[in-house]
């Protein structure tokens, strides 16, 4: 790890140089919101937003991704046999990702890169990416990252971390991938570790929203599952799925075939535990047929099953997107507090 100082004029010139060796991605304003998008040469990543509307997960795990192609034409060789499509796994530079979103990839990796099975699409995309993070000096009002195992200056999952210091960026180069990228951009000015640390401390203190999750691991799964508060918590939910799509850690997907004429493909699409079809059996039987059961599943997964399964904290990085975007104001911070404080047989405030 080493410290750099990058004048903003050098930053712009360096970004220019990344086009070529890298496919460059960064926040871009489209309509009302910023989202991550592929940038063309001459475009600069727009760092004026607090965070992108959608998380950065789609860069590695697209909302729709082609898994296989095939032909159903019996006159063609290998008809009905699945073929992997040719894909671009050349290096990607992801500029301006927030530390919470970068940390989220390290949690999602636990699902897609397991000792038994490897999801090649996710793993190859992730391996292709170099993440240049942008630390948060002004956290959003709904952020609770410091309660969710990360923070505004967290370096987990990042290759370079930038901190905005007015006319220049203070940077930490964290990995080999990061070294390669700063070399390609030509950023070399010596930095100031002390100033970086001071900014990090100040930013951490600004995240005032705190959530207690320490007792979740010690709870009995079936006690929480049978707790009386789920109907009340889920009452306002309209099962729109917004929370799951905006979430940087939600990873559930569907597999669908699509055919046009004799040519077809198999697709992997984001899915959501908020929808009844997610779990409906062929017979019509549905283990999570009721809204409250689905809301319970989402929070139990994030705050209990994941905690128990991996011992890596909660399945949430505290980005606050689901809190700000939920149309009925369901707040994961409140749900976490209720679950964390729940004792069977005792009254609980909902």
């Amino acid at each position: 790890m080493r410290d750099l100082k990058i004048a903003k004029t050098d930053w712009a010139k360096g970004v220019e140089k990344l086009f070529g060796p890298y496919r460059v991605f960064g926040p871009k304003k489209e309509g009302l919101f910023h989202n991550f998008a592929r940038l063309e040469k001459g475009e600069a990543p727009d760092f004026s937003c607090k965070n992108t509307r959608l998380s950065a997960k789609g860069l590695i795990y697209p909302q729709t991704e082609k898994m296989f192609e095939y032909t159903l034409d019996p006159n063609k060789p290998d008809h009905h046999v699945h073929k992997e499509p040719v894909k671009d796994y050349s290096p990607m530079a992801v500029l301006g990702i927030r530390p919470c979103d970068a940390k989220a990839f390290t949690l999602v990796k636990l699902n897609f890169d397991t000792p038994e099975y490897k999801d090649p699409y996710w793993i190859k995309n992730y391996a292709a990416a170099t993440f240049v993070g942008l630390a948060c000096d002004a956290p959003c009002h709904a952020c609770f990252c410091t309660s969710a195992g990360t923070g505004p200056y967290d370096t987990a999952g990042l290759d370079v971390l930038l901190a905005d210091a007015g006319d220049f960026f203070l940077a930490k180069v964290l990995t080999e991938k990061g070294e390669k990228l700063v070399a390609a951009a030509g950023w070399a000015g010596a930095g100031d570790a002390g100033a970086f640390e001071a900014k990090a401390k100040a930013a951490g203190d600004k995240v005032v929203s705190k959530v207690n999750t320490a007792k979740l691991a010690g709870k009995v799964t079936n006690d929480l599952h049978a707790a009386p508060f789920w109907e009340d918590l889920a009452f306002a939910c309209i099962n729109c799925g917004t929370c799951t799509y905006l979430c940087p850690t939600c990873w559930c997907f569907d597999i669908q075939d699509e055919v046009c004429g004799t040519e077809g493909c198999r697709l992997k699409n984001w899915d959501s535990c908020m929808y009844p079809l997610f779990t409906m059996h062929g017979t019509g039987h549905n283990p999570r047929g009721e809204k409250a059961q689905r809301v319970r599943q989402r929070f139990m997964h994030k705050l209990k099953y994941f905690v128990d399964k991996y011992g890596a904290g909660i399945h949430c990085v505290g980005c606050g997107r689901c809190v700000t975007a939920c149309p009925v104001n369901i707040d994961i911070r409140r749900v976490a507090e209720i679950m964390n404080g729940y004792e069977p047989g005792k009254d609980c405030a909902v």
Partner: peptide, 22 residues
């Protein structure tokens, strides 16, 4: 349970932290 991936990744067949498929 309803399944898609069959390898414990797609997230729908869980009974608590266990996946029926894996």
């Amino acid at each position: 349970n309803r399944m898609k991936c069959g390898i414990g990744m797609c997230g729908r067949c869980n009974i608590g932290m266990e996946f029926v498929c894996k």
